[in-house]
Amino acid sequence: MHATSTVPAAGESVAAEKPVPDRRSWNRAFADIRDGVTQRELWSHLGWQDIKQRYRRSVLGPLWITMSMGVTALGLGLLYSQLFGAPIGTFLPYITTGFIVWQFILGNLTEGTDTFIRNEGLIKHLPAPLSVYVLRTLWRQSIMFAHNMIIYVIVLAVFWGSLTKSGYVLTDNGVPQPGLGWSALLAIPGFLLLAVNAGWVILLFGIVSTRFRDIPQVITSLINLMFFMTPIVWTTDILQNRFGESAGWRDLVVELNPLYHLLQLVRAPLIGNEQSWHHWVISAGIALVGWILALVVMRNYRSRVSYWV
């Protein structure tokens, strides 16, 4: 028996009167994120797979992440501690931790813009929530961060003496730091807040970049500048020393840089630096505003991403 044709005639109402889903609805945007989060096994697997794929057939495998970070940190630490005449015992850990956190920020920014473009094949072939790809990128970056933290542990072991001494300074005449203690655990909530920020960055920049392919280029060209503008290889102490009370606008270079606050969330506790509460407030504020923006874009353009990739 053949199934009869089910094309409804023009006047005939076949579809039961269900509420017609709007392409642009908050419900569907939130549903996407909710479904994405529940598919944890999928995105965590994909994140791992990305890492494994990148280092397949290499002898060290993902340990290359650790290796390259180690070499970079050592080189930068040695050079800049000499340039600034800073004690290597505290300055090298400072640069290393800063660079590790920076790598996480950098990775989320640059690969975030690429999130949907890179997953074009999957997006066009399998119906899955967009947030799965966001979480895949975020998870991949977190795994890389974890690999880099091995270097932190090594550095910590080597320079334990200098870092735990209360009142150490990073550079001459710098602010005396409290030294490493239990407050280092603040780095965990710090990292979580950083990751929450990474989430909206990937989502927002990912969608916008899919439509406007110049955005990834803009980010890549600005990111190097941002690296040098952010106190990673230099310290705010140097800025203060150089200009004292008259720092004025020069201070703003740091304070207006959102990346500085995000960086401090994790770096300061890790090396026993004093952490000002205002980093937390500003970072939380950025997260709030960013997520609102990202959700608006998600609501309006979620359904367009598969057309744009």
């Binding site: 889903p21 997006i123 399998l126 119906p127 057309y307």
Partner: peptide
């Protein structure tokens, strides 16, 4: 792909 939900219709509806 429209039937799978990968593409949501630009106009009209797909339930």
């Amino acid at each position: 792909r429209l039937l799978s939900g990968i593409y949501e219709p630009t106009r009209g509806t797909a339930l």
